[in-house]
């Protein structure tokens, strides 16, 4: 891991297009400002950890009424109404 020392208001540039600025420090807290193009997702590590734990808790082994399950093709002909669940592209 690359370790750099920075003062408040100093930046790190990643890949020529992502700027990480040390905005403020306060005890154990470091406030960072991140400027990145819209195609670069920036999230706290905790988000990934939370979703991972949630997925693991949601794993279902054995399905009641499994014999009644039929393939549900998620194609355009699906009976599921996508109207209000579609993501809004940025």
């Amino acid at each position: 891991m690359l370790v750099l020392s920075r003062k408040v208001n100093e930046n790190i540039v990643i890949d020529g297009r992502i700027i990480v600025k040390v905005v403020r420090t306060e005890g154990n807290f470091v406030k960072l400002g991140i400027e990145a193009p819209p195609d670069v997702p920036v999230h706290r590590q905790e988000i990934y950890d939370e979703i991972q734990k949630s997925n693991q808790a949601a794993l279902t082994v054995g399905r009641p009424n499994a014999g009644q399950l039929r393939p549900a093709k998620p194609g355009p002909s699906t009976p599921v109404d996508p109207a209000s669940s579609t993501p809004s592209p940025k």
Binding site: D39, A58, L59, G62, D81, S85, P87, K90
Partner: peptide, 23 residues
Amino acid sequence: NQGFVVVPPSSVLPNYAPDISSQ
């Protein structure tokens, strides 16, 4: 024998509007 129960959010939370990244 393994999987996940899933639901289209439109049927349970009509106002759910996740902003999916361009990436």
